[in-house]
Nucleic acid binder design. Structure first.
Lengths: 342, 342
DNA sequence: CTGTTAGCGCGTTCAA
DNA sequence: TTGAACGCGCTAACAG
């Protein structure tokens, strides 16, 4: 029975081949097969026999068994609020490609900025023995919360900041918001209003802070326009635009907010000339096709992603310095017409 | 040593708790813990003890071990060309949420329309023992190819069609393209050109076929404008728009193509009045904010996703009829100004 | 460089 | 209903 199993299985196609089957067919020990598959040197002759047996049986190693035995699942968790916007969908795409290049597959989990769901996800990743986690965290996240769920798994905060004891990669939000604000002020606008959704979001808070700093430094009063949802932001915006203290320019902190602004312009039937100048964050596909073409801060998404994974993997293979790192990358101001340029 | 292990582990935090630890602490057998966790009836008193022990130890079942033992990983694979466009990013988002609702996590893999990479991904999913696969396939995919890599895993083709022996869910591409074309002809345009990228893509072929049918039926000559890349499509388009046989209207088969068209309009400096009417596929975020607001076919993404998962899970729990199914859902024509309406 | 042994954590037999 | 024993497929630790 046992000796025949390898061949029997091929014919019956009942079960998947195992290392043992391969070992039998190649007349070697199971661990030799294992070694060969993991790239540990084996004698050339043996290697070839094993390779043939693998092909003959259509053998694929079982990652569950591997993970169980070795403790590493070759999997990383990607935990985000959502994927359906320009920034995150690009991030996800790049994360997946680069993780794969490093031999890991991605488990994707979205939490919609709900802390409880995020915790569920972290627990899920622990169950799946994820080797590491890239996390864009929900408001309210703390190191303690994370560590109580996944004590031993390396975590890198992406586009968010948790504490000095967790690695993070983000846009240099405050600084780039200062640049953006200064650019608007440079056009001569003084009544500049800062528009964004989700006031609890870390990145928005930082950007708003940068904006406020510059405004205050110029003895101008910062005005923050925020709402928790798309529709609400729209109606608040509409009021402000129709009110008496009409802004001279708008600083939009996300593609989301930019969309609200443009929607209001359209709903109000504003002609090009009547549209208040805008400078926005995120250089999404259609930023240059809307009216007027949007001047934006472009985030260095590819760099953010590769830095995040480099950081994470340096933890995984233990090559990292013990000190946690907070990498902040600078954005690029893409000048188009909406801010009043040319 | 053994008896003390449960408590020792809590203090040392060296290792994760296992069923055995929980069993010891609750003074029951390991299999009772296993049963409790999977919802198999247990005596109430015992249940409570186990529940407390689980909480006290911060126990989470190990999915690798579960998968190894039971053969089911509670994981599904999502294999797509990319995630960074409106259609796919929304699809991914919904897939993840709904898969999670059904107790599965999602392994995300992108192939960029490269057949070889797609095959790698299917092999990867087999290694991870994925319970099922949602696949938007690369050009050239056949049932045989798929089955040679993952013989025993249920596959549902999403937004693509492989053969009558693999379940699929798609837009009623041909029919909805007919509707779109007829709408344009209804405006009186006769020289209608169909624009799209990636001519090998199944959906585009179907849409183009629907377009061609309607054109031919009206004794009009179908004109297909295609290119493998964004830039190329743009330059081809530019030539055609400046040529002598200028189209009277454009049928764009994807958000991608729509973007090319609008970019060319902009690059050519065309005023609103000079812009050739367009009807496009995909109702992306900014479709109503560009100039002119885009008339589009909106795909029923949510329905497509829920149907795909329903189909897949019916295979998983064996409740499905043996016959494969091809579910085709109809799109919605969203009238805006770009087609010449109002 | 190789084969043998043991056990990762769980679910599934079987008896009781 | 419960517990003990076994083994899923693999790799780490040994001995050769």
């Amino acid at each position: 029975m046992k000796i025949a199993s390898a061949r029997t299985r091929i014919k019956l196609q009942k079960k998947r081949a195992t290392v043992t089957d391969v070992a039998e067919l190649a007349h070697v020990g199971a661990s030799t097969v294992s070694r060969f598959l993991r790239g540990v040197p084996v004698r050339p002759k043996v290697a070839e026999r094993v390779a043939q047996a693998v092909k003959a049986l259509g053998y694929e190693p079982d990652e569950s068994a591997r993970a169980l035995r070795s403790g590493r699942s070759r999997t990383i968790g990607l935990v985000l609020p959502k994927v359906s916007n320009a920034f995150f969908s690009q991030s996800v795409q790049l994360m997946e490609e680069q993780a794969r290049q490093r031999g890991c597959t991605v488990i994707l989990l979205t939490h919609g900025d709900r802390l409880a769901e995020q915790l569920e996800h972290l627990a899920t990743l622990r169950r799946y023995r994820a080797d590491g986690v890239i996390l864009t965290c929900a408001p309210g996240t703390t190191t303690r919360i994370i560590r109580s769920v996944i004590p031993e798994v390396p975590v890198v905060a992406f586009d968010s900041y948790i504490s000095s004891s967790i690695d993070s990669v983000l846009l240099d939000n405050r600084e780039v918001a200062r640049t953006a604000t200064e650019h608007l002020l440079g056009h001569g606008y003084r009544n500049v209003v800062c528009v964004f959704g989700k006031p609890e979001t870390y990145s928005f808070q930082e950007r708003a802070a940068g904006y406020s700093e510059v405004m205050s430094a110029q003895s101008l009063i910062p005005r923050l326009l925020t709402a928790p949802s798309y529709e609400l932001l729209g109606s608040v915006l509409q009021e402000v635009l129709q009110g008496k203290d009409r802004p001279e320019a708008l600083l939009s902190l996300s593609d989301f907010a930019s969309r609200s602004i443009l929607t209001v312009y359209r709903d109000l039937g504003l002609k090009m000339a009547e549209r208040i100048p805008v400078l926005g964050f995120d250089d999404f596909d259609f930023a240059q096709l809307v009216d007027p073409p949007l001047t934006v801060i472009r985030q260095p998404i590819a760099e953010m992603v590769s830095n995040s994974l480099a950081l994470l993997f340096s933890r995984l293979d233990g090559s990292a310095p013990k000190k946690t790192r907070a990498i902040s990358l600078t954005g690029e101001l893409i000048l188009r017409r909406s801010c009043g340029c040319a």
